[in-house]
């Protein structure tokens, strides 16, 4: 009987929390489709007008393009910087992994504003383009997620032996890396790239302070829009929400696929 009551209480609590979390999202989505929603429980009618307005707005399209460029370039920089390091740590010198782990949590412990102030002061008098400073800073901020995703990719196989085997079979180190290592960590790399991309795509603090109005990304545009047009801003929020949801679904699907593949491998091995 007591157990039954506990279960009911747990269900009520979970339902309330779910409603609390889902209500703003549902309201924002509804608001983005509402013709008008003032002093009524539900909107007066539904429309796609705000969406049409948004996708034909040149400011929005420019901001979207900037965010995508920022995301892509940051992802490329992060991969070029971190992938060789993670490879080296996993294949040749596991002892540096503890130090790497410490470094990767630093972006969590240093607040963005402190990082930006430091970067601006260091590079203010140097002939380094502000855009480059921003790209490197965002790449660094994505380090915790990028490192973890890449590091996990190296667990599955004996990469040292595979890499050295490719050398013995006649390949150069770079070709061996490209032909043997990369194809076998592609799933982990893809997840790391998605995480780095979404991190950079949604970045606000660094971009706003370092480049400010000179480089209006989607997030900065979103904040500007919130102050002038609530409905357009809810449309943008909805679009942004679904964009992130799709990326999350892709990642979950990949992880599930990997899990089922591993289970199949275990079954196959048992059969042999």
């Amino acid at each position: 009987m007591e157990k039954h009551i506990d279960r009911i209480i747990a269900k009520i609590v979970i339902t309330l929390i779910s409603i609390y979390l889902a209500a703003p999202i549902v309201a924002t989505i509804m608001y983005s489709f509402a013709k008008s929603w003032v002093n009524t429980i539900l909107p007066d009618g539904w429309t796609f007008e705000w969406y049409l307005q948004l996708i034909t707005n040149s400011d929005f399209l420019s901001a979207l393009a900037r965010s995508i460029i920022l995301g892509f370039v940051t992802t490329i920089i992060a991969m070029c910087c971190f992938l060789p390091v993670v490879f080296y740590a996993n294949v040749y010198d596991e002892s540096i992994k503890a130090k790497l782990r410490f470094i990767t949590v630093l972006p969590f412990t240093i607040p963005g504003i402190v990082l930006v102030t430091g970067l601006v002061r260091v590079y203010a008098n140097l002939p380094v383009p502000q855009m480059l400073v921003l790209l490197l800073a965002i790449s660094l901020l994505s380090l915790p997620v990028t490192y973890q995703a890449l590091d996990n990719a190296f667990i599955a196989h004996d990469f040292r032996a595979m890499f050295e085997q490719a050398l013995i079979l006649g390949d150069s180190p770079i070709k061996a890396f490209v032909k043997v290592v990369i194809p076998n960590i592609r799933v982990g790399m893809f997840i790391a790239m998605l995480l780095t991309f979404t991190n950079a795509f949604g970045e606000y603090v660094l971009t706003n302070i370092i480049l400010g109005g000179n480089y209006e990304t989607l997030k900065i545009y979103m904040y500007r829009l919130m102050q002038s047009n609530g409905q357009a801003s809810s449309v943008l929020t909805t679009v942004y929400f679904f964009f992130l949801a799709i990326i999350s679904i892709i990642m979950i699907a990949i992880m599930k696929w990997q899990g089922s593949k591993k289970a199949e491998e275990v079954e196959d091995t048992k059969k042999l």
């Binding site: 085997q165 050398l167 013995i168 006649g170 043997v180 076998n184």
Partner: peptide
């Protein structure tokens, strides 16, 4: 290592998981 014409078999066999048996053997 790639100029010695020596073959080596590792403890883990180091087969390339992304390649078929044929492609593994054809690699070199």
């Amino acid at each position: 290592a790639n100029q010695r014409n020596i073959g080596m078999i590792f403890q883990s066999y180091a087969l390339f998981p992304n390649l078929s048996v044929f492609e593994n053997v054809a690699y070199g």
